[in-house]
Amino acid sequence: MTMIRLKNLSKSYKLGKEEIPILKRISLDVEEGEFLAIMGPSGSGKSTLMNILGCLDLPSSGGYELESMNMVTGQENKLADIRNQFIGFVFQSFHLLPRLTALQNVELPLIYNGWKKKERKERAMDALKKVGLEDRASFRPPQLSGGQRQRVSIARAIVNKPKFILADEPTGALDTKTGEQILSLFQELHEEGVTIIMITHDEQVAKKADRIIYIRDGELFKDRSEDAYA
């Protein structure tokens, strides 16, 4: 079943009078339960694609559907709800709040979703257990190692049981060994049926995914050859 459908999606920025295209008529289907890697060098438009997939930014034209729901809406609060309920973010630099404990960080999406305190704590604790950090629940990010921090942010991504996880260079700030552990955690989640979209520039990392697509100069390719994907 197709979960995400991008149709002729374009994005361009205005720089003075000039219109600079970043994404050019991109079309992409992602199946439910798929583990997809999007690869591309810097400047290829992969960050912009990820922002649009994450509903952090809006496309200039084209369609974006998630389970047949139209995701292109101008309302800020609606987008906030979509991000909160449907998407789990994992960032390269973790993006944890340093003054909150691991548990509190994981609780954040539930707070914005209006959960009651007790259930919130239980749910967040379950997510931490899932990434094997229940014994670090009361630690603050600066007291955790890089791998542990990334696992906290994965716990935060899955705590609201999102439709898919959007991971932006999840191993970029980690050493190879720790990166491996994070990737195997993703594979575990994938085996449980979670849809994952991972953005990376590292071939070794991308290989862990079911499918790799390449992005270059704002266009998608099935492989490194010049054939356009769509």
Binding site: D81, P109, Y112
Partner: peptide, 8 residues
């Protein structure tokens, strides 16, 4: 971060 996680 808060906005990305759904803070309105």
């Amino acid at each position: 971060i808060k906005k990305a996680l759904g803070a309105k």
